[in-house]
Design a protein around this nucleic acid. Structure first.
Length: 548
RNA sequence: GCGCCCGUAGCUCAGCGGAUCAGAGUAUUGGCCUCCGAAGCCAAGGGUCGUGGGUUCGAAUCCCGCCGGGCGCGCCA
């Protein structure tokens, strides 16, 4: 069933085409803050003034004249204001209808089936198994998972994928670190390998290895065994953290599989065949500058090995070949130089991969403050705050909601002291509280909530009630916009606003009144709010508790 | 130095395909529970939207310069 907004938009767009034939303009309905300006408004007449060389008000009058009958038939009215704005007002019955619609659709409210469903991949976290997950990974997990859920809500078939390097120099470094630690070498002490990981978790792995390894001396010399043990240990740990965070991946992709399958070699051959490579200083270079990069990149080093850039390209070829027409990589901005490079590599191959492939959501790194000082995020230092720490301190719901509540590219300061001291004032509770309050009210009423979907809604005429209905009606549009812009923070802001409207309403009006018709209508509205909050929170991976 | 991103209320941040866009939370101050959950509500103060130009009838929003901050700029990953 098309929403009133869609209907109004369609009718007005038709009128605009008749008034301004041949002029390419997209009609956009705004949501005015000022209620005097109606429920929707458009400045399309002002925008048409120049191309039509006419007064905006005249144009507005003509549009309104054209659309009026149809608009009114569909439960709305038009008026012209100011310089030529067209304000649209919906009748109360039109607004009330959304409540029944939500209760009918239940957990599907906001979800749509795409006209053309796409196979979409969101790749995120992708932490190498060289240490516990840090807050940056937490931000990625919160963003990526919400993004994936958002795209699913729009009818796409989404795969969540985790990519990790299980064989490179960093892994070797990990093995050496564990080995040294197991042999009793202290970080920084004599015999400590250069650039070794010094975090405490290395000691834990070393002790665990010795405890389970049988003959410690013999096992310790077997660096390969140490490496396998350490990787498995850290993978388990990361899995546990992700599970606690409520994030599930569909695919774990190993970098080593690209080598094993000959994909890396094949990519190099493909690049050479494209004619975009050249030899210089004993190395093989790719002309990435042909594709907007600021310098050419080395593909094969003079020692014969490949740069990390090659498996990166091979991996994305693989994504493409698996049929993912749309891929979104969630990464920190510290990797933004890879964006141009990977795209350049894919274009150079000339195998028909679309130009902007893949999409990226880059997030600024999270700065962690504690005791008024910054805690450096560095795997090597071993002093960074982990995802697990955050969850233990403020709870999974708060961490997820908080981390997704900001635009990805804005810098983000996570003040540990504040989160600890004021955990109860975290915005997530505000939204959850609205949900719990409604649950409590429905329980007190004691009726059958399923019945509310059929209840008469005509009694919902209060200003706050109609505003709430409008807010609820925005939900699907908000989701579509958030999915389109890859901006999950919009969901968090919407929920905050909806909860705010509800709390305000709750304090102003009594829901469980004597008058049955009024009570049922109000309960139906509240049930619809509860449903919408639950649906929104589910997308963010945050629980919607019935009691708090 | 070059490239990308970011500068909006004391603080943390929305808004940025122009108009009906000066907003939210928090903090501060003052009110509201014999009443459905006060983890709540109501009200007040607080910003020349970093800065200087430009485009436009109209700019927080688009363009250019400058200032400030972040991240990149390896035959590291």
């Amino acid at each position: 069933m098309p929403s009133p907004k869609d209907t109004v938009e369609l009718i007005l767009a038709g009128a605009v085409r008749r008034v301004a034939p041949g002029i390419d303009i997209t009609l956009r309905l705004e949501l005015p803050r000022n209620p005097d300006h109606g429920d929707y408004a458009t400045s399309v007449a002002l925008q048409l003034a120049k191309p039509l060389a006419r007064k905006p008000r005249e144009i507005a009058e003509e549009i309104v004249h054209n659309a009026k009958a149809d608009i009114e038939k569909n439960g709305a009215s038009l008026e012209i204001a100011g310089a030529g704005f067209i304000n649209i007002r919906l009748r109360s019955t039109t607004k009330q209808a959304v409540v029944a619609e939500i209760l009918k659709q239940g957990s599907n409210y906001g979800r749509v089936s795409a006209a053309r469903p796409e196979k979409v991949m969101v790749e995120f976290v992708s932490a190498n198994p060289t240490g516990p997950l840090h807050v940056g990974h937490g931000r990625q997990a919160a963003l990526g998972d919400a993004l994936a859920a958002l795209l699913e809500s729009q009818g796409h078939e989404v795969t969540r994928e985790f990519y990790y390097n299980d064989a490179g120099a960093q892994i070797q470094n990990l093995a050496l670190s564990v080995q040294a630690r197991a042999q009793g070498v202290e970080p920084g002490g004599p015999g400590w390998p250069a650039d070794a990981y010094a975090g405490d978790y290395i000691r834990e792995i070393a002790e665990d290895f010795k405890a389970r390894g049988g003959n410690p001396r013999g096992d310790l010399d077997d660096l390969d065994a140490v490496r396998r043990f350490a990787v498995a240990f850290l993978r388990d740990e990361q899995d546990m953290d992700l599970q606690k965070f409520g994030v599930k991946f569909g695919v774990y992709f190993l970098e080593s599989s690209l080598y094993a399958g000959g994909k890396v070699e094949g990519t190099v051959e493909g690049l050479i065949a494209s004619g975009k490579t050249y030899e210089k200083d004993g190395a093989l270079w790719l002309r990435t500058t042909d594709y907007g990069d600021d310098k050419d990149r080395v593909v094969r080093k003079s020692d014969g090995s490949y740069t990390y850039f090659v498996p990166d390209v091979a991996y994305h070829v693989n994504k493409w070949q698996r049929g993912f027409a749309k891929v979104i990589n969630v990464q920190g901005t510290d990797h933004h130089s890879a964006v141009t490079r990977v795209r350049a590599g894919l274009q150079a191959l000339g195998i028909g991969i679309s130009e902007g492939y893949p999409d990226y959501v880059l997030h600024s790194l999270v700065k962690v403050m504690r005791g008024g000082a910054e805690v450096k995020i560095s795997k090597r230092a071993g002093s960074y705050v982990t995802v697990r720490d955050l969850i233990e301190w403020v709870g999974r719901d708060a961490v997820r909601f908080f981390l997704v509540s900001r635009k990805a590219d804005s810098e983000f300061t996570f003040d540990i002291d504040l989160a600890l001291a004021k955990s109860e004032e975290n915005p997530v509770y505000y939204v959850q509280y609205a949900h719990a309050r409604i649950c409590s009210m429905l329980a007190q009423w004691g009726g059958d909530p399923a019945r509310l979907a059929q209840v008469a809604l005509g009694a919902l005429t209060g200003e706050k009630e109609l505003r709430l209905a409008q807010r609820l009606a925005e939900f699907p549009d908000m989701l579509a916009a958030a999915a389109g812009e890859l901006a999950p923070h919009a969901v968090a802001f919407y929920l905050r606003a909806l909860a705010g409207d509800f709390h305000s309403y709750y304090n102003a009006e009594r829901i469980l009144v004597e008058d049955e018709a009024l009570r049922d209508a109000r309960l139906a509205l509240c049930a619809a709010i509860r449903q919408t909050i639950a649906n929104g929170l589910a997308l963010l991976g945050v629980s919607a508790p019935e009691k708090m």
